[in-house]
Nucleic acid binder design. Sequence first.
RNA 1: GGGCCGUUAGCUCAGCCGGUAGAGCAGUGGACUUUUAAUCCAUCGGUCGGGGGUUCGAAUCCCCCACGGCUCACCA
Length: 516
Amino acid sequence: MNDARTGERHWADREAVEILQREPEAPVVETGISPSGPFHVGHLREILTGDALTRALRERGAAARLVFIVDNLDPLRKVYPFLDAGVFGPLVGRSLCELPAPDGEGRYDEHFLRPFLSALGRLGVDAEVLPASELYASGRMDEVVLRALEQRDLLARIQQEVTGKSLPETWSPWNPRCPACRRIDQGEVLGFDREAGTVRSRCRACGEEAEQPIAGGGKLTWRVDWPARWKALSVTSEPFGKDHASRGGSWDTGARIAREVYGMEPPHPVIYEWIGLRGQGDMSSSRGNVLTVGELLEVVPPEVLRYFVLKARPARAITFDPGLPLLRLVDEVDNAAARGRDERALELSRAGRFRPVGVPFHHLVLVGQLAGFDAERVIALLERGGYRDLDRGAVEERLVLARGWLERFAPDEARVEIAETLPDAARHLEPDQREYLARLATLLPDLEGASADAIHERLYALASIEGGPGPRRAFEAIYRALLGRDRGPRAASLIEIWGPRRAAARLAEAAEAAAG
RNA sequence: GGGCCGUUAGCUCAGCCGGUAGAGCAGUGGACUUUUAAUCCAUCGGUCGGGGGUUCGAAUCCCCCACGGCUCACCA
């Protein structure tokens, strides 16, 4: 890493070096997300930041682990807009892992987690997924929980000092789950027994009193849970969103608790900014219009999503635009000769076997439309356009994505559709353009079945004759007649695919309409 | 109000453990039997938000200010 001077060092490398100073052998990177709703692009930053760190650590010879905690013990806080109030209203306060899925099939947490995990697999994220429910049930948290119960007063003091807010007398770091009504957010701790490893509690909701084992009987409150996990799992680094980072936030309390209660240095923090969304309106899980990771993988290769996130320093807010800008990103990843690409970020973006296509994504979208997304015809068109040595399988794969992008995110300009009837734009043509179309219309029927190259010859030759409109304006006239726009894909291909005879009729119609 | 991040060419950004600025896109010129951000070559383009300070020397370090975004109920 002697390139510090040239500034080519990636943020993940810099952080890795610092983490290794603290734990050179087996650093543990922890990340975590609450499965209360769909996982979207924003969540990607949490896990990918952790993944990049882990990779950078492993490259340096460390036996780094990436632990992904699923906070499925968290209670359902309210009835989210995408939930049925009748079903979920009465279930508020229960752990996410004890709720039915929104569609009624299976478990709530798994409903949201499953697609995310499969996306992670495709993204090449090598993480140990650990649901909080299992972490607690395993007993691995018992000791840190007992310590918290014993240090209740100290914890309360720290929290009050850091947040400036007072806590009720009955506050406890432990949230017991009521064995009767299953709520995990209403319990009041009455006492605990270190020898037996149990907690006595009463439920404020239903009044039930019980004595339950720590393992499986509840969870720590978030602010204590976090540092307790650091201790229990020997966490050495933790990426987290800036919401936790603000003054008086959970990082501040967590860091103190780590030192004063658990006698450890808090993990090396990596604070990241948020990912905004452009093009589809702001992302808002409450409105339900989120971009899920799975959705995006139907549109671009996983490497592109990784690259998008890893290219920017975590502290930098970035905006995700699934429209045209996303395509640029695809090309940057696909084309080894692309300028301005961040090689190191790209290296960290590998997600398995990436098959470059060598055709700009936007062009593929275009050709795909012309050829009805039929792989054979697409490849024929591409070859005619000068692309050689195409990796057939890679093209086919990418073509599926191109189609997905077109259907889901393409702006109108990217769509090629031959107008059903003569477009209005075709009425505005100069005399020489009209003349051109009229003459072309008489030639085209003879070209039925001809190759696009042959057709192009004629288009071009006719445009260039004495008194002709010249290529540029000739093509403009054709596009107006067929698409109602001034520009378009290779006119010859368009005509070949639509059929020269049909095109001829349209061009003649345009020539006439413009004259009248 | 507290805090975090940002303010570098028209746009998006890199550079930031100091040595008088870079890329992509846009623009301009040219090439091309040019076609939906086209490609290739060349080129124009910056008082590095403002003001102080440290230093032989600062976009890079320190302080102050302005503007912008975000965040402060366990929503990454």
